[in-house]
Design a protein around this nucleic acid. Structure first.
Lengths: 212, 212
DNA sequence: CCCGAACCTGAGCAAGCGCTTAGGGGCCGT
DNA sequence: ACGGCCCCTAAGCGCTTGCTCAGGTTCGGG
Protein backbone atom coordinates (compact mmCIF):
# COMPACT_ATOMS: atom_id res chain seq x y z
CA UNK A 1 0.00 0.00 0.00
CA UNK A 2 2.51 2.60 1.11
CA UNK A 3 5.62 2.76 -1.04
CA UNK A 4 6.66 6.02 0.59
CA UNK A 5 9.62 4.92 2.70
CA UNK A 6 12.24 2.97 0.82
CA UNK A 7 16.01 2.70 0.80
CA UNK A 8 16.35 4.21 -2.65
CA UNK A 9 16.42 7.98 -2.61
CA UNK A 10 13.66 7.92 -5.17
CA UNK A 11 10.58 7.78 -2.97
CA UNK A 12 8.86 10.55 -0.94
CA UNK A 13 8.52 12.47 -4.15
CA UNK A 14 9.71 15.97 -3.28
CA UNK A 15 12.28 14.96 -0.69
CA UNK A 16 15.05 17.08 -2.16
CA UNK A 17 13.19 20.35 -1.76
CA UNK A 18 15.02 21.45 1.30
CA UNK A 19 13.15 23.87 3.59
CA UNK A 20 10.03 22.07 4.69
CA UNK A 21 7.87 25.14 4.12
CA UNK A 22 9.13 25.42 0.56
CA UNK A 23 8.17 21.80 -0.07
CA UNK A 24 4.65 22.44 1.21
CA UNK A 25 4.33 25.36 -1.18
CA UNK A 26 5.67 23.33 -4.06
CA UNK A 27 3.27 20.46 -3.46
CA UNK A 28 0.41 22.94 -3.25
CA UNK A 29 1.54 24.46 -6.54
CA UNK A 30 1.61 21.05 -8.23
CA UNK A 31 -1.98 20.41 -7.16
CA UNK A 32 -3.15 23.84 -8.26
CA UNK A 33 -1.32 23.81 -11.60
CA UNK A 34 -2.61 20.31 -12.39
CA UNK A 35 -6.17 21.26 -11.48
CA UNK A 36 -6.53 24.64 -13.14
CA UNK A 37 -3.41 25.15 -15.26
CA UNK A 38 -0.49 27.47 -14.61
CA UNK A 39 -2.02 30.68 -15.92
CA UNK A 40 -5.34 30.15 -14.16
CA UNK A 41 -3.63 29.58 -10.83
CA UNK A 42 -3.01 32.56 -8.56
CA UNK A 43 -0.17 32.89 -6.10
CA UNK A 44 -2.81 33.49 -3.45
CA UNK A 45 -4.35 30.12 -4.23
CA UNK A 46 -1.02 28.32 -3.91
CA UNK A 47 -0.19 30.04 -0.62
CA UNK A 48 -3.69 29.34 0.66
CA UNK A 49 -3.40 25.62 -0.04
CA UNK A 50 -0.12 25.56 1.86
CA UNK A 51 -1.74 27.40 4.76
CA UNK A 52 0.31 30.56 4.37
CA UNK A 53 -0.15 34.15 3.35
CA UNK A 54 0.54 35.17 -0.27
CA UNK A 55 3.76 36.92 0.74
CA UNK A 56 5.29 33.75 2.24
CA UNK A 57 5.66 32.33 -1.26
CA UNK A 58 8.25 34.95 -2.18
CA UNK A 59 10.52 34.07 0.71
CA UNK A 60 11.17 30.65 -0.83
CA UNK A 61 10.72 31.33 -4.55
CA UNK A 62 11.63 34.40 -6.53
CA UNK A 63 8.65 34.20 -8.89
CA UNK A 64 5.68 32.03 -9.73
CA UNK A 65 7.57 30.89 -12.81
CA UNK A 66 10.43 29.61 -10.67
CA UNK A 67 7.96 27.32 -8.94
CA UNK A 68 6.92 25.85 -12.28
CA UNK A 69 10.54 25.48 -13.29
CA UNK A 70 11.49 23.56 -10.15
CA UNK A 71 8.48 21.30 -10.55
CA UNK A 72 9.16 20.73 -14.22
CA UNK A 73 12.84 20.00 -13.75
CA UNK A 74 12.47 17.57 -10.86
CA UNK A 75 9.54 15.87 -12.57
CA UNK A 76 11.39 15.36 -15.82
CA UNK A 77 14.46 14.07 -14.01
CA UNK A 78 12.35 11.54 -12.14
CA UNK A 79 10.60 10.35 -15.28
CA UNK A 80 13.88 10.09 -17.14
CA UNK A 81 15.43 8.17 -14.25
CA UNK A 82 12.55 5.67 -14.31
CA UNK A 83 13.07 5.18 -18.02
CA UNK A 84 16.84 4.86 -17.76
CA UNK A 85 16.96 2.20 -15.07
CA UNK A 86 14.62 -0.04 -17.07
CA UNK A 87 16.52 0.55 -20.31
CA UNK A 88 19.84 -0.40 -18.71
CA UNK A 89 18.72 -3.80 -17.43
CA UNK A 90 19.90 -7.03 -19.00
CA UNK A 91 17.62 -8.88 -21.35
CA UNK A 92 16.24 -8.82 -24.85
CA UNK A 93 15.17 -5.57 -26.49
CA UNK A 94 11.56 -6.67 -26.13
CA UNK A 95 11.96 -7.19 -22.40
CA UNK A 96 13.65 -3.84 -21.97
CA UNK A 97 11.11 -1.98 -24.11
CA UNK A 98 8.23 -3.58 -22.23
CA UNK A 99 9.85 -2.77 -18.91
CA UNK A 100 10.52 0.82 -19.89
CA UNK A 101 6.99 1.43 -21.12
CA UNK A 102 5.48 -0.32 -18.11
CA UNK A 103 7.43 1.81 -15.64
CA UNK A 104 7.11 5.03 -17.59
CA UNK A 105 3.35 4.63 -17.92
CA UNK A 106 2.99 3.60 -14.29
CA UNK A 107 4.84 6.75 -13.28
CA UNK A 108 2.56 8.92 -15.40
CA UNK A 109 -0.51 7.26 -13.91
CA UNK A 110 0.58 7.22 -10.26
CA UNK A 111 2.00 10.73 -10.32
CA UNK A 112 -0.55 11.93 -12.85
CA UNK A 113 -1.00 15.28 -11.18
CA UNK A 114 2.72 15.99 -11.32
CA UNK A 115 2.95 14.54 -14.81
CA UNK A 116 0.18 16.77 -16.06
CA UNK A 117 2.08 19.86 -15.01
CA UNK A 118 5.36 18.53 -16.31
CA UNK A 119 4.00 17.55 -19.71
CA UNK A 120 1.38 20.17 -20.47
CA UNK A 121 2.55 23.42 -18.88
CA UNK A 122 5.88 23.40 -20.65
CA UNK A 123 5.42 26.54 -22.66
CA UNK A 124 4.40 28.60 -19.69
CA UNK A 125 8.10 28.53 -18.83
CA UNK A 126 10.39 31.37 -19.79
CA UNK A 127 12.65 31.04 -22.80
CA UNK A 128 15.77 29.80 -21.00
CA UNK A 129 14.01 27.43 -18.65
CA UNK A 130 12.02 25.93 -21.47
CA UNK A 131 15.04 25.08 -23.59
CA UNK A 132 16.64 23.48 -20.55
CA UNK A 133 13.59 21.25 -20.05
CA UNK A 134 13.31 20.43 -23.74
CA UNK A 135 16.86 19.08 -23.58
CA UNK A 136 15.83 16.68 -20.81
CA UNK A 137 12.93 15.59 -22.94
CA UNK A 138 15.11 14.75 -25.91
CA UNK A 139 17.02 12.36 -23.69
CA UNK A 140 13.83 10.36 -23.05
CA UNK A 141 13.38 10.19 -26.78
CA UNK A 142 16.93 8.92 -27.24
CA UNK A 143 16.45 6.15 -24.66
CA UNK A 144 13.38 4.71 -26.36
CA UNK A 145 14.85 5.10 -29.82
CA UNK A 146 17.98 3.22 -28.75
CA UNK A 147 16.02 0.21 -27.50
CA UNK A 148 13.94 0.06 -30.66
CA UNK A 149 17.05 0.34 -32.84
CA UNK A 150 18.70 -2.51 -30.96
CA UNK A 151 15.59 -4.63 -31.34
CA UNK A 152 15.59 -4.03 -35.08
CA UNK A 153 19.32 -4.76 -35.33
CA UNK A 154 18.92 -8.07 -33.48
CA UNK A 155 15.99 -9.08 -35.64
CA UNK A 156 13.58 -8.99 -32.73
CA UNK A 157 11.46 -6.12 -34.02
CA UNK A 158 9.88 -5.31 -37.36
CA UNK A 159 9.74 -1.51 -37.53
CA UNK A 160 9.63 0.28 -40.90
CA UNK A 161 9.91 3.79 -39.39
CA UNK A 162 11.98 3.92 -36.21
CA UNK A 163 11.69 7.67 -35.64
CA UNK A 164 7.95 7.69 -36.16
CA UNK A 165 7.40 4.67 -33.97
CA UNK A 166 9.55 6.16 -31.20
CA UNK A 167 7.46 9.30 -31.37
CA UNK A 168 4.24 7.33 -31.20
CA UNK A 169 5.38 5.21 -28.25
CA UNK A 170 6.36 8.24 -26.19
CA UNK A 171 3.24 10.10 -27.23
CA UNK A 172 1.10 7.19 -26.08
CA UNK A 173 2.82 7.07 -22.70
CA UNK A 174 2.75 10.81 -22.09
CA UNK A 175 -0.92 11.16 -22.93
CA UNK A 176 -1.70 8.90 -19.97
CA UNK A 177 -1.18 11.96 -17.78
CA UNK A 178 -4.06 13.68 -19.58
CA UNK A 179 -6.76 11.06 -19.23
CA UNK A 180 -5.76 9.02 -16.20
CA UNK A 181 -8.10 9.44 -13.29
CA UNK A 182 -7.34 8.04 -9.85
CA UNK A 183 -11.06 7.42 -9.31
CA UNK A 184 -11.28 5.48 -12.58
CA UNK A 185 -11.49 1.75 -12.94
CA UNK A 186 -7.87 1.02 -13.87
CA UNK A 187 -4.89 0.93 -11.55
CA UNK A 188 -1.55 2.32 -12.67
CA UNK A 189 -0.16 -1.23 -12.80
CA UNK A 190 -2.94 -2.41 -15.09
CA UNK A 191 -2.44 0.48 -17.46
CA UNK A 192 1.33 -0.13 -17.49
CA UNK A 193 0.81 -3.79 -18.31
CA UNK A 194 -1.72 -3.03 -21.05
CA UNK A 195 0.49 -0.41 -22.65
CA UNK A 196 3.62 -2.55 -22.53
CA UNK A 197 1.71 -5.20 -24.47
CA UNK A 198 0.37 -2.69 -27.00
CA UNK A 199 3.83 -1.27 -27.61
CA UNK A 200 5.32 -4.70 -28.20
CA UNK A 201 2.66 -5.20 -30.84
CA UNK A 202 3.50 -1.84 -32.39
CA UNK A 203 7.11 -2.85 -32.90
CA UNK A 204 6.15 -6.29 -34.16
CA UNK A 205 8.04 -8.12 -31.43
CA UNK A 206 8.66 -11.77 -32.37
CA UNK A 207 8.32 -13.27 -28.91
CA UNK A 208 6.10 -11.95 -26.18
CA UNK A 209 8.30 -11.74 -23.06
CA UNK A 210 6.31 -14.00 -20.77
CA UNK A 211 7.08 -13.01 -17.17
CA UNK A 212 6.84 -16.66 -16.09
CA UNK B 1 -2.63 21.15 -53.23
CA UNK B 2 -5.49 23.38 -52.12
CA UNK B 3 -8.40 21.45 -50.71
CA UNK B 4 -10.14 24.62 -49.65
CA UNK B 5 -12.99 24.75 -52.15
CA UNK B 6 -14.93 21.53 -52.46
CA UNK B 7 -18.53 20.50 -52.98
CA UNK B 8 -18.91 19.05 -49.50
CA UNK B 9 -19.86 21.64 -46.91
CA UNK B 10 -16.91 20.46 -44.89
CA UNK B 11 -14.17 22.69 -46.22
CA UNK B 12 -13.43 26.41 -45.52
CA UNK B 13 -13.25 25.50 -41.86
CA UNK B 14 -15.30 28.16 -40.13
CA UNK B 15 -17.83 28.71 -42.89
CA UNK B 16 -20.86 28.39 -40.64
CA UNK B 17 -19.88 31.30 -38.42
CA UNK B 18 -22.27 33.77 -39.93
CA UNK B 19 -21.24 37.44 -39.57
CA UNK B 20 -17.94 37.81 -41.35
CA UNK B 21 -16.49 39.95 -38.56
CA UNK B 22 -17.39 37.29 -36.01
CA UNK B 23 -15.55 34.70 -38.07
CA UNK B 24 -12.45 36.85 -38.18
CA UNK B 25 -12.56 37.18 -34.41
CA UNK B 26 -13.07 33.46 -33.98
CA UNK B 27 -10.15 32.58 -36.22
CA UNK B 28 -7.99 35.06 -34.32
CA UNK B 29 -9.07 33.44 -31.07
CA UNK B 30 -8.16 29.97 -32.33
CA UNK B 31 -4.67 31.16 -33.19
CA UNK B 32 -4.19 32.94 -29.89
CA UNK B 33 -5.59 30.11 -27.75
CA UNK B 34 -3.44 27.55 -29.55
CA UNK B 35 -0.32 29.66 -29.19
CA UNK B 36 -0.59 30.82 -25.60
CA UNK B 37 -3.50 28.90 -24.07
CA UNK B 38 -6.94 30.19 -23.14
CA UNK B 39 -6.07 31.75 -19.80
CA UNK B 40 -2.93 33.46 -21.07
CA UNK B 41 -4.81 35.04 -23.97
CA UNK B 42 -6.36 38.46 -23.47
CA UNK B 43 -9.44 39.76 -25.20
CA UNK B 44 -7.30 42.67 -26.38
CA UNK B 45 -4.96 40.25 -28.12
CA UNK B 46 -7.81 38.50 -29.91
CA UNK B 47 -9.38 41.77 -31.03
CA UNK B 48 -5.98 43.07 -32.10
CA UNK B 49 -5.29 40.05 -34.31
CA UNK B 50 -8.68 40.55 -35.95
CA UNK B 51 -7.86 44.23 -36.51
CA UNK B 52 -10.54 45.55 -34.18
CA UNK B 53 -10.83 47.32 -30.87
CA UNK B 54 -11.34 45.25 -27.70
CA UNK B 55 -14.95 46.39 -27.47
CA UNK B 56 -15.85 44.96 -30.88
CA UNK B 57 -15.50 41.45 -29.52
CA UNK B 58 -18.48 41.88 -27.23
CA UNK B 59 -20.82 42.79 -30.06
CA UNK B 60 -20.47 39.29 -31.51
CA UNK B 61 -19.78 37.21 -28.39
CA UNK B 62 -21.17 37.60 -24.91
CA UNK B 63 -17.98 36.53 -23.14
CA UNK B 64 -14.51 35.21 -23.84
CA UNK B 65 -15.72 31.80 -22.68
CA UNK B 66 -18.43 31.79 -25.36
CA UNK B 67 -15.68 32.10 -27.97
CA UNK B 68 -13.97 29.01 -26.60
CA UNK B 69 -17.26 27.18 -26.50
CA UNK B 70 -18.07 27.91 -30.13
CA UNK B 71 -14.60 26.83 -31.18
CA UNK B 72 -14.72 23.68 -29.09
CA UNK B 73 -18.16 22.66 -30.28
CA UNK B 74 -17.54 23.19 -33.98
CA UNK B 75 -14.13 21.54 -33.72
CA UNK B 76 -15.44 18.46 -31.99
CA UNK B 77 -18.29 18.14 -34.45
CA UNK B 78 -15.86 18.30 -37.35
CA UNK B 79 -13.56 15.69 -35.84
CA UNK B 80 -16.47 13.42 -35.05
CA UNK B 81 -17.81 13.84 -38.57
CA UNK B 82 -14.45 12.80 -40.03
CA UNK B 83 -14.43 9.73 -37.84
CA UNK B 84 -18.04 8.81 -38.61
CA UNK B 85 -17.79 8.93 -42.39
CA UNK B 86 -14.82 6.58 -42.35
CA UNK B 87 -16.46 4.23 -39.87
CA UNK B 88 -19.61 3.92 -41.99
CA UNK B 89 -17.86 2.84 -45.18
CA UNK B 90 -18.06 -0.68 -46.51
CA UNK B 91 -15.17 -3.04 -45.96
CA UNK B 92 -13.51 -5.16 -43.33
CA UNK B 93 -13.08 -3.92 -39.79
CA UNK B 94 -9.36 -3.53 -40.46
CA UNK B 95 -10.01 -1.34 -43.47
CA UNK B 96 -12.48 0.81 -41.56
CA UNK B 97 -10.25 1.11 -38.50
CA UNK B 98 -7.26 2.07 -40.65
CA UNK B 99 -9.37 4.60 -42.54
CA UNK B 100 -10.76 6.12 -39.38
CA UNK B 101 -7.36 6.48 -37.76
CA UNK B 102 -5.79 7.81 -40.94
CA UNK B 103 -8.44 10.52 -41.34
CA UNK B 104 -8.69 11.36 -37.66
CA UNK B 105 -4.93 11.75 -37.36
CA UNK B 106 -4.70 13.71 -40.57
CA UNK B 107 -7.35 16.08 -39.23
CA UNK B 108 -5.43 16.57 -35.99
CA UNK B 109 -2.23 17.26 -37.92
CA UNK B 110 -3.65 19.53 -40.60
CA UNK B 111 -5.85 21.48 -38.22
CA UNK B 112 -3.42 21.12 -35.36
CA UNK B 113 -3.95 24.65 -34.13
CA UNK B 114 -7.70 24.14 -33.87
CA UNK B 115 -7.21 20.64 -32.49
CA UNK B 116 -4.92 21.90 -29.76
CA UNK B 117 -7.59 24.26 -28.49
CA UNK B 118 -10.31 21.66 -28.84
CA UNK B 119 -8.41 18.92 -27.04
CA UNK B 120 -6.42 20.74 -24.40
CA UNK B 121 -8.48 23.75 -23.32
CA UNK B 122 -11.51 21.70 -22.42
CA UNK B 123 -11.59 22.47 -18.74
CA UNK B 124 -11.38 26.19 -19.26
CA UNK B 125 -15.03 25.87 -20.24
CA UNK B 126 -17.80 26.51 -17.77
CA UNK B 127 -19.59 23.60 -16.12
CA UNK B 128 -22.51 23.32 -18.56
CA UNK B 129 -20.51 23.84 -21.71
CA UNK B 130 -17.92 21.31 -20.61
CA UNK B 131 -20.44 18.52 -20.03
CA UNK B 132 -21.93 19.25 -23.45
CA UNK B 133 -18.52 18.84 -25.08
CA UNK B 134 -17.66 15.74 -23.06
CA UNK B 135 -20.80 14.12 -24.47
CA UNK B 136 -19.54 14.74 -28.01
CA UNK B 137 -16.25 13.21 -27.01
CA UNK B 138 -17.86 10.02 -25.75
CA UNK B 139 -19.37 9.56 -29.19
CA UNK B 140 -15.89 9.43 -30.75
CA UNK B 141 -15.03 6.78 -28.23
CA UNK B 142 -18.11 4.77 -29.16
CA UNK B 143 -17.26 4.88 -32.86
CA UNK B 144 -13.79 3.44 -32.39
CA UNK B 145 -14.95 0.89 -29.85
CA UNK B 146 -17.62 -0.35 -32.25
CA UNK B 147 -15.15 -0.97 -35.05
CA UNK B 148 -12.80 -2.83 -32.75
CA UNK B 149 -15.64 -4.92 -31.35
CA UNK B 150 -16.74 -5.88 -34.84
CA UNK B 151 -13.21 -6.84 -35.76
CA UNK B 152 -12.97 -9.09 -32.73
CA UNK B 153 -16.38 -10.63 -33.45
CA UNK B 154 -15.41 -11.41 -37.03
CA UNK B 155 -12.12 -12.92 -35.95
CA UNK B 156 -10.09 -10.23 -37.71
CA UNK B 157 -8.60 -8.74 -34.55
CA UNK B 158 -6.93 -10.20 -31.48
CA UNK B 159 -7.66 -7.75 -28.65
CA UNK B 160 -7.64 -8.93 -25.01
CA UNK B 161 -8.89 -5.59 -23.61
CA UNK B 162 -11.25 -3.74 -25.96
CA UNK B 163 -11.91 -0.78 -23.67
CA UNK B 164 -8.25 -0.24 -22.91
CA UNK B 165 -7.22 -0.55 -26.52
CA UNK B 166 -9.93 1.88 -27.62
CA UNK B 167 -8.64 4.34 -25.06
CA UNK B 168 -5.07 3.89 -26.26
CA UNK B 169 -5.97 4.33 -29.93
CA UNK B 170 -7.85 7.56 -29.32
CA UNK B 171 -5.16 8.79 -26.97
CA UNK B 172 -2.52 8.17 -29.61
CA UNK B 173 -4.50 10.08 -32.23
CA UNK B 174 -5.38 13.03 -30.01
CA UNK B 175 -1.82 13.55 -28.82
CA UNK B 176 -0.84 14.32 -32.41
CA UNK B 177 -2.30 17.78 -31.83
CA UNK B 178 0.25 18.35 -29.06
CA UNK B 179 3.45 17.48 -30.90
CA UNK B 180 2.65 18.05 -34.56
CA UNK B 181 4.52 20.94 -36.07
CA UNK B 182 3.76 22.24 -39.54
CA UNK B 183 7.45 23.10 -40.01
CA UNK B 184 8.45 19.55 -39.05
CA UNK B 185 9.59 16.85 -41.41
CA UNK B 186 6.36 14.86 -41.65
CA UNK B 187 3.26 15.73 -43.63
CA UNK B 188 -0.20 15.07 -42.18
CA UNK B 189 -0.67 12.30 -44.74
CA UNK B 190 2.52 10.54 -43.71
CA UNK B 191 1.60 10.66 -40.04
CA UNK B 192 -1.88 9.36 -40.82
CA UNK B 193 -0.44 6.45 -42.79
CA UNK B 194 2.10 5.62 -40.09
CA UNK B 195 -0.49 5.72 -37.33
CA UNK B 196 -3.01 3.63 -39.24
CA UNK B 197 -0.36 0.94 -39.58
CA UNK B 198 0.62 1.14 -35.91
CA UNK B 199 -3.01 0.84 -34.81
CA UNK B 200 -3.57 -2.22 -36.98
CA UNK B 201 -0.61 -3.79 -35.24
CA UNK B 202 -2.06 -2.85 -31.84
CA UNK B 203 -5.27 -4.73 -32.57
CA UNK B 204 -3.40 -7.70 -34.03
CA UNK B 205 -5.08 -7.42 -37.42
CA UNK B 206 -4.71 -10.65 -39.42
CA UNK B 207 -4.40 -9.13 -42.85
CA UNK B 208 -2.89 -5.77 -43.65
CA UNK B 209 -5.42 -3.96 -45.87
CA UNK B 210 -3.25 -3.38 -48.92
CA UNK B 211 -4.70 -0.38 -50.82
CA UNK B 212 -3.69 -1.98 -54.15
C1' DC C 1 -32.60 64.88 -47.33
C1' DC C 2 -33.36 62.40 -43.29
C1' DC C 3 -34.13 58.03 -40.57
C1' DG C 4 -33.06 54.02 -38.14
C1' DA C 5 -30.45 49.85 -38.03
C1' DA C 6 -26.03 47.61 -38.03
C1' DC C 7 -21.42 47.91 -36.69
C1' DC C 8 -17.54 49.70 -34.48
C1' DT C 9 -14.42 52.81 -31.35
C1' DG C 10 -12.27 55.61 -27.23
C1' DA C 11 -12.31 55.88 -22.76
C1' DG C 12 -12.69 53.79 -18.67
C1' DC C 13 -14.58 50.91 -14.44
C1' DA C 14 -14.20 47.46 -10.81
C1' DA C 15 -11.76 43.56 -9.75
C1' DG C 16 -8.00 40.72 -9.52
C1' DC C 17 -3.20 39.92 -10.64
C1' DG C 18 2.10 39.21 -9.34
C1' DC C 19 4.93 40.99 -6.27
C1' DT C 20 7.03 44.29 -2.38
C1' DT C 21 7.71 46.27 2.03
C1' DA C 22 7.52 47.21 6.99
C1' DG C 23 7.20 44.95 10.91
C1' DG C 24 5.93 41.21 14.47
C1' DG C 25 6.79 36.83 16.99
C1' DG C 26 9.35 32.57 18.24
C1' DC C 27 13.78 30.31 18.97
C1' DC C 28 18.88 30.10 19.21
C1' DG C 29 23.45 30.78 21.86
C1' DT C 30 25.50 33.34 25.43
C1' DA D 1 17.88 38.47 29.93
C1' DC D 2 18.66 39.67 25.36
C1' DG D 3 20.29 40.48 20.67
C1' DG D 4 20.33 38.40 16.12
C1' DC D 5 18.17 35.49 12.91
C1' DC D 6 14.75 33.15 10.47
C1' DC D 7 9.98 32.84 9.05
C1' DC D 8 5.95 34.67 8.47
C1' DT D 9 1.89 38.28 7.91
C1' DA D 10 -0.97 42.69 6.92
C1' DA D 11 -1.30 45.98 3.89
C1' DG D 12 -0.95 47.65 -0.33
C1' DC D 13 1.39 49.27 -5.03
C1' DG D 14 1.19 49.43 -9.90
C1' DC D 15 -0.64 47.16 -13.53
C1' DT D 16 -3.62 44.24 -16.44
C1' DT D 17 -7.79 41.88 -16.88
C1' DG D 18 -12.71 41.00 -18.70
C1' DC D 19 -16.13 43.77 -19.79
C1' DT D 20 -19.30 48.25 -20.46
C1' DC D 21 -21.20 52.38 -22.49
C1' DA D 22 -22.01 56.70 -24.82
C1' DG D 23 -21.25 58.17 -29.14
C1' DG D 24 -19.57 58.06 -34.09
C1' DT D 25 -19.64 56.15 -38.99
C1' DT D 26 -21.76 53.74 -42.87
C1' DC D 27 -25.58 52.34 -45.43
C1' DG D 28 -30.19 51.18 -47.76
C1' DG D 29 -35.05 52.80 -48.07
C1' DG D 30 -38.51 56.60 -48.21
Amino acid sequence: MSAAEETTGEETPWGEVTPEAARRLLVAAVDAFAERGYHATTTRDIAGRAGMSPAALYIHFKTKEELLHRISKIGHERALCVLDTEADRDGTAAERLAGAVRSFVRWHAERHTTARVVQYELDALGEEHRTEIVALRRRSDAVVRRIINEGVRDGEFDVPDVSGTTLAVLSLCIDVARWFNARGSRTPDEVGELYADLVLRMVGARTAPDPK
